[in-house]
């Protein structure tokens, strides 16, 4: 009888999860609230805000073709909040294909690769790039990624050129960066959505991610409860 329960149609579990996540959206339950932000895009937004708040110059590069759209979405909004201008306070460079070659080249002379910005102007003519030629002219690099690109940054940019690096990664890969943090190969790391939100609250910037928290609360407990139920059933059927 109980064993049948273990073999239930997985679609019933799917339906359960849908309800657990969807109902709180329609009808908030007001469970304890903490800030949870969405993903690496949130991390990137928080970091750009921080840089602008501190009046730092920002240069953006990417090696993931799918990320170019996200970059535009971030920079369409955030610079206005701090009255920052393209070319004067920040610059966006075009996508490049081979990260190992580009990261190596940026240690010597980045203009050999980035001879044009996203709009086709020569970056040397932009005020934001004055006095910047290679890593040693920059304060630090921050790599935000949903892939293993951060490893490439550590190896090709950080270690080789003694360039201070920070990272923002998805939650699943966060535990894997303990070794680089311990050796100082990474100076800081944001992990997943919680990282982005914690960073935002440290900066005193109100994140808007609080609404999702009910759903995530319930969803997480559902996973734990399902694992426990299935294992209790097994123990019960075996020993009683």
């Amino acid at each position: 009888m109980l064993e049948k329960f273990l073999k239930i149609d997985r679609r019933i579990i799917f339906l359960l999860l849908t309800l657990v996540l969807f109902i709180p959206i329609v009808k908030p339950l007001n469970l304890p609230i903490g800030a949870v932000s969405v993903d690496t895009k949130k991390q990137a937004t928080a970091i750009v805000r921080h840089c602008f708040k501190k009046d730092l110059r920002v240069g953006v590069i990417t090696f993931i073709a799918g990320a170019t759209g996200l970059i535009e979405e971030i920079f369409e909004k955030v610079p206005q909040e701090y009255r920052k201008e393209y070319g004067k306070d920040y610059v966006i460079f075009p996508y490049q294909a081979d990260y190992s070659a580009v990261l190596t080249q940026m240690g010597f002379d980045l203009y050999q690769i980035y001879d044009k910005d996203k709009f086709g102007t020569h970056p040397k003519n932009l005020p934001v790039m004055q006095g910047i030629k290679s890593y040693k002219d920059m304060g630090m690099g921050i790599c935000i990624t949903g892939t293993a690109l951060l490893d490439g940054w550590v190896a090709f940019a950080g270690d080789k050129f003694k360039f201070p690096l920070g990272g923002g990664v998805t939650a699943v890969s966060q535990p894997g960066y303990g070794p680089y943090l311990q050796t100082g190969q990474l100076v800081g790391l944001l992990g997943g959505m919680k990282g982005g939100a914690e960073y935002e609250s440290l900066l005193g910037i109100p994140g808007k991610g609080t609404s999702g928290i009910d759903a995530l609360n319930l969803g997480h407990f559902m996973v734990v409860i399902l694992i426990l139920i299935s294992n209790i059933i097994i123990i019960v059927t075996r020993y009683f």
Binding site: R10, I33, G34, N217, H220, V224, L226, I227, S230, N231
Partner: peptide, 28 residues
């Protein structure tokens, strides 16, 4: 639900680590 079986001590250790992270991530 269907295949997370805590049969050995090793699986139990994995489950406990996962449990800490799952519940640690949400305010509840």
């Amino acid at each position: 639900f269907r295949s997370f079986r805590i049969k050995t001590l090793q699986a139990f250790v994995l489950f406990m680590a996962a449990l800490f992270f799952i519940i640690g991530k949400v305010p509840l």
